[in-house]
């Protein structure tokens, strides 16, 4: 077992230099690092001295520093965007002491298939600020799809427009504090009796995550009374692997039912 070297930079510029070293990666909450048992890690950069724990709203854009914990996001976001889906998703995530430890940056980089962060971020079409090898602003989807972006790169924060859409969040679990077998995020904008815009994201399926763009297109512009919710679950194009919480077929059924329920809820029809 090789010795791990720790770095405690105080300025971002130092981080950029340290990131160039071989297999030296950021440490935020450390919960993911421990879970992966330091695989492919020779050094850790502690980010706690970098003031990356800001959370503010600027010109209608919410900016969240990478070092905010789930707990802090819930606390602070409740004040500036009380209806935001992240408040529900993150306050139901893990447990009280873990929410005090798990960070936004670590959770985007780690992106476990039970993530309660990534569904909402994808639905919010959030952006990431990166420094290091791939400096710049990237849509969260691009970061997720292009693994290269993780290399020698630090996430400093995330950004999104906290549109006041109706939202729904569901976690499929065996017990209340279980990690989610899958989760569903729905964001929906209504005007009069019409669906103006909708985004639907699921995490935990075979492809890790899925945005149901076809379904979104089908729903967009529809009169709420015309939406045939009952058909949606059955025809949902998604598949699952593994046996947690039941067979893939059952989990798919469950996902369909809960998606329908979510839509009914946001459409406020029963």
């Amino acid at each position: 077992m090789n010795e791990i070297e720790w770095f405690f930079p105080e300025r971002i510029e130092e981080v950029i230099e340290i990131l160039k070293k071989d297999k030296v990666v950021p440490h935020s909450g450390g919960t993911g690092i421990l879970r992966s048992d330091f695989r492919r890690i020779k050094g850790l950069i502690d980010l706690s001295l970098l003031s990356l724990d800001y959370l503010q709203s600027n010109n209608g854009i919410v900016e969240i520093g990478a070092m905010n914990t789930y707990y802090r996001v819930v606390q602070k976001l409740s004040q500036i965007a009380p209806n935001n889906v992240l408040i529900k998703s993150l306050s139901d995530s893990a447990s009280t002491p873990l929410r005090n430890r798990i960070t936004i940056g670590g959770s985007v980089a780690y992106f476990p298939i039970w993530s309660d962060l990534m569904g909402p971020l994808i639905a919010l079409e959030a952006g990431l600020s990166l420094i290091g090898e791939y400096k710049g602003d990237y849509p969260v989807l691009e970061y997720v799809r292009n693994r290269e972006l993780r290399n020698k790169t630090l996430i400093t924060g995330i950004r999104f427009k906290p549109d006041n859409w109706d939202s729904y969040y569901y976690r499929a679990t065996r017990t209340e504090t279980d990690y989610a077998r899958f989760n569903i995020t729905i964001l929906l904008k209504k005007s009069n009796n019409r669906i103006e815009n909708v985004r639907i994201v699921m995490i935990g399926n075979k492809e890790r995550f899925k945005r149901f763009t076809a379904l979104e297109e089908y729903l967009k512009g529809k009169n709420i009374d015309r939406v045939k919710i009952q058909e949606i679950g059955k025809n949902l194009e998604v598949s699952f692997a593994g046996k947690k919480m039941g067979s893939p077929e059952y989990v798919k059924h469950l996902a369909g039912v809960e998606l329908e329920r979510g839509l009914s809820r946001v459409l406020a029809i029963s």
């Binding site: 720790w6 440490h27 909450g29 450390g30 850790l44 447990s95 009280t96 002491p97 430890r101």
Partner: peptide, 25 residues
């Protein structure tokens, strides 16, 4: 594993599972 809470402490006033905290941090 971070599941049982027997190891809970307050770290700078925040409740955490001490098994999920790397000492160096």
């Amino acid at each position: 594993e971070g599941e049982c809470g027997a190891c809970i402490i307050l770290l700078d006033g925040r409740l955490v599972n001490s098994c999920q905290v790397l000492t160096a941090s």
